[in-house]
Design a protein around this nucleic acid. Structure first.
Lengths: 375, 375
DNA sequence: TTGTAGGCGTTATCAA
DNA sequence: TTGATAACGCCTACAA
C-alpha cells in the first residue's frame, strides 16, 4: 500500500525512498540510482521506479541528501543592505549564475555591522553552505573568524571590497580608474575647484575612489584643497551634509562617490539655492536606469554591478569544485556616461569624439558585458 | 585525543557530537542537552561538556538537526525581481523579522515567469523550508502546484498580490485606495483629462490600481476616456511607450502605477518636448528616498513596502507555529506625498491643510509605521 | 545489474 | 540525571 495517501483521504507524511522502493518492489539503491540518474538500471526497473515515484508523488528530501553527500548546494551571500540600490544587481548577478549551476542563495544583510556579519558567518557555516559571497564590513576578520573560516574550509569570495592582509579571491570594480575618469572629465571641462564627496576610508573602495580623485587632480595640475574633500558613508544623509559643507565653499564642481550621496547633495544644493549644472558641475558614481529620466540628468561612471556578482559566483563555483589556483582579484572595468549634470553642454571645450573615452588607463581593466536590469 | 586537530597540524574533519561526548566522557544525550539548553544536566557534567565543546571548537551541524527535528529554520522568498527597486524593501522587512526569530532566508527571483516560479517552489519544498513568502506571477496555481503545496503542508503567505480562488494569507498595500487618492488629487487640482499608465491587469494590484483610477474619475464626475488609459507591465520601457501614446493625446495629467514606468514616461515627455508639471501634471506610485532630490520632484503615493514584507513574515511565523486561524488578507495603508510633479504650486486651489489627507476611505486600512531605508 | 548494510550528525524515546 | 539506541531520509561501498 502506498504510504502517501491519494487525493481525498487523510494525508500522512511525505513518502520517502523506502516507500518508493517497496511500491516498485526494488531496493532503495535502485530508486536512488534512478533519481540521481547514476549507475546502470535496467529499463524495466527504471520504469517501475518512475511509476512508483509518480504514484507516491515522491520528491527526495534534499536535507537528507545534503547530510549524506556533505554538500548542500546552497551558498550564502552577505551584503551590507539589500535596500541600498547598489546591491540588488550584485545579488541578482550572483543568483542567476548560482541558479544556473543548481545552487540556491541564502541572503544576509550585515548593515555594515561587524557583529551581525560575524553572526551570519557562523550561521552560514553551521548550515553547511558550500560557499560564501561577502561584501565585508570595515576592518579585518577577527582571529576567531579567521580560524572559523580556515577550519570550515569553505570557499569565500569577496565582492566590491578587498581586505588587507587576507588572501582570498575577490571581484571588484575598477574604482580607482573610474574615479579618475570622473574627475578627469570635470577637469577637462575646465573646472578648477573640484570637490569630493568620498566613500568611507575604512573600506577599500572608499579609499580607491579617493585615490582616483587625487590622481586626477595631480594629472591635471590642480591643487588638492582638503577643505573641498569630505568623507561620507555612502548614505543619503552624508551626501546632504557634505553638500552643505562643500557648496558654500565655492566648489565649482563635485565628484560624488555613489548615487545615494549624490541624491543627498542635490537636496542640499536645492536648499542653498544652487542649480546643477548651471552653478556647479557634478559627476556621480554608479548608474541606474532612471538616471536619464530626471533632472539634472546625471553624468556618472557606471559600475558593472551585475557582473561583479556574476563573476564572483563563477569564481566561487570554481573553488567549490576544487580549483586550487592561487587567490585572484578580478577588477572589472567602469564606464563613463556623459549626460548633463557635468555641464558638458554648457562648457563644451573638447571635440565630441573624446567625451566617452578614458584619458588614461591607470590600471589594467577587464571588459565585461553589462546586463540591463529587467524592471 | 581530539578529533579536530589544533592549529598547525593537518586538519581533519569538523568534530561532531560524538567527539564531544567522548572528550567529556559523557553520552551524546548529555551533550545534546547542554547544547540545546534542554533537559536537566548537573553542573559538573555541563562544565565538562562546555570545556570539550570549546576545546574541539564544536558547532552543531544544523543540517543534521533539521533532518532529525523536521524543521529547517529557513524560509523561502520568491519575488519577481530583486532588481526592481520595489522589492528590496519588502525582502528586507521580511528578513529582519525572520532573522529576529532565528530564521534564514532563501531568495528566489521568478522574473514573473510561471515556470521559474514553479521550479523554485518545488526546490524550496524539497529543501524543506518551513514556510514560503511569495509574490505570485500572473495567473492561478496549476493543479499540480496546488497539490504540491497541500501535500507539503508548508505555510505560504502571499505578498502584494492575491490570487482569486486560492485561500491563503496575504499582505498587500491598499492599492485601490492609494490609486484613488492619487487620481483624486489630480482631479482636485483641476485636471480634466487624466491619463493612466496602469499595471498589468492579470495581477491583482494592477487591477486594483486601475479600479482606484476609475472610481476617482467617477467620484469627480470625470468621463472615462479609454484612449487615455494604457496597460503597462511595471517596467521602464512600458512607461516610455505609454508616454508616447498618452501625452500627444492631450492628457493634461497622468497617474502612473509605479516608479519604473514613471521614469519611462518622463523620458518620453522629454523627447516629445513636454515639461512636467508645466505642461502636464503627474502623480506616481511608490516612493523612494531620492525622489525629492531630482526634478520634477515626484508627487507620489507611498507604499508600505517594508511593512508588507515584515507583516507577511510575522504572519508566516504564526502559521509555522501552528496558528489555525482562518486565512486573512492584511491591507496596509498608503500615503500621498505631495511634491511638485502634480503641479500643486502652479494650480493651488485647495487650502494647504487638506493636501495630505485622503478625501475618502474606500476600504478599511491598517496604519503602519514606515521605516526609512538606511542607505 | 541489483541488493544489503552502514554511515552522515542530530534528536528523542525509554530504560536505568 | 544520564546512557543506549532507534529514528530522520538519503548515499554508497561492498556483495551477490
Amino acid at each position: 500500500m502506498s504510504r502517501m495517501k491519494t487525493a481525498k483521504s487523510g494525508r500522512s507524511k511525505a513518502s520517502n525512498i523506502y516507500d518508493v522502493a517497496r511500491q516498485a518492489k526494488v531496493s532503495v539503491f535502485t530508486v536512488s540510482a534512478v533519481v540521481n540518474n547514476s549507475g546502470k538500471v535496467s529499463d524495466r526497473l527504471r520504469r517501475r521506479v518512475e511509476a512508483a515515484i509518480r504514484e507516491l508523488n515522491y520528491r527526495p528530501n534534499l536535507l537528507a541528501r545534503s547530510l549524506a553527500r556533505h554538500q548542500t548546494h546552497t551558498v550564502g551571500i552577505i551584503v551590507p543592505d539589500i535596500v541600498n540600490p547598489f546591491f540588488p544587481l550584485v545579488v541578482r548577478g550572483a543568483e542567476d549564475v548560482a541558479q544556473n549551476a543548481g545552487y540556491s542563495v541564502l541572503l544576509c544583510n550585515s548593515d555594515n555591522q561587524r557583529q551581525k556579519e560575524e553572526q551570519y558567518l557562523e550561521l552560514l557555516l553551521s548550515k553547511r553552505v558550500d560557499g560564501i559571497l561577502l561584501t565585508k564590513t570595515h576592518g579585518p576578520f577577527s582571529p576567531a573568524q579567521q580560524r572559523l573560516l580556515a577550519d570550515a574550509r569553505v570557499p569565500l569570495v569577496l565582492m566590491m571590497r578587498t581586505i588587507p592582509q587576507f588572501r582570498s579571491d575577490a571581484v571588484v570594480s575598477d574604482d580607482l580608474q573610474g574615479a579618475f575618469e570622473a574627475v578627469s572629465h570635470l577637469a577637462r571641462l575646465g573646472y578648477r575647484r573640484i570637490g569630493l564627496v568620498g566613500g568611507p576610508l575604512d573600506v577599500s573602495n572608499g579609499r580607491a575612489r579617493w585615490q582616483g580623485f587625487r590622481r586626477a587632480l595631480k594629472s591635471y595640475h590642480l591643487p588638492y584643497d582638503s577643505s573641498l574633500a569630505t568623507e561620507g558613508d555612502y548614505r543619503v544623509e552624508s551626501g546632504y551634509q557634505a553638500g552643505l559643507m562643500l557648496l558654500p565653499r565655492l566648489a565649482d564642481s563635485v565628484y560624488v562617490a555613489n548615487y545615494l550621496m549624490t541624491a543627498g547633495l542635490m537636496k542640499a544644493a536645492e536648499e542653498i539655492g544652487l542649480r546643477c549644472p548651471e552653478d556647479f558641475g557634478l559627476v556621480s558614481f554608479d548608474d541606474y536606469p532612471w538616471l536619464g529620466c530626471f533632472h539634472p540628468r546625471l553624468t556618472t561612471v557606471d559600475l558593472p554591478k551585475y557582473d561583479v556578482g556574476a563573476e564572483a559566483m563563477r569564481l566561487l563555483l570554481r573553488r567549490m569544485n576544487g580549483s586550487a589556483a592561487r587567490p585572484m582579484i578580478e577588477k572589472l572595468a567602469t564606464h563613463l556616461i556623459v549626460r548633463e549634470s557635468c555641464g558638458f553642454a554648457l562648457r563644451m571645450k573638447k571635440p565630441v569624439g573624446e567625451r566617452e573615452k578614458p584619458v588614461a588607463q591607470l590600471s589594467e581593466s577587464r571588459s565585461a558585458v553589462y546586463r540591463q536590469p529587467t524592471e
